[in-house]
Design a protein around this nucleic acid. Sequence first.
DNA 1: GCCAACGTTGGC
DNA 2: GCCAACGTTGGC
Length: 154
Amino acid sequence: MRHWLMKSEPDDFSIDELAQVTQEPWTGVRNYQARNFMRDDMRVGDLVLFYHSNTKPPGVVGLAKVASEPYPDPTQFDPESKYFDPKSDPDNPRWQMVDVAFVERFDETITLKQIQSQAEALEGCALVRRGNRLSVMPIEAEHYQTIVQLRSTS
DNA sequence: GCCAACGTTGGC
DNA sequence: GCCAACGTTGGC
């Protein structure tokens, strides 16, 4: 099983909303690298660190899991959507995504600051690399453990 | 609000 | 194919 981190701005879609709806299509990813991870590498049941970006404080706020095979993101064909992509061909959709299911909401956010304090253990982790803007990224199993263990030490 | 980092676009 | 201009992300 692989581990992932998926970012969302809580104003857009938060862990609380995921907890309410239980499962949600991960629409709106418009970055090829992030798409490729969802399309090519995710498997149903993979665990996901749910990350809130552009908020105070940014950090991991809970756990989710991959809940579907990849399929075309419908918002790319919806002219009313802010994710509409007029260049995407319906016969060969450009953007694929997966559904994500709620697993757990943490009582307290594991802040980016806490995560960065583990720089040594997280060597090579995309999340702590400089200038990283990927919204979907793989996390090594050991790094996943390092991050989740920050729950009890906070 | 600022700005560094990075992706995309388009002229050549 | 290069690269400058521009747009977006996201921490601070």
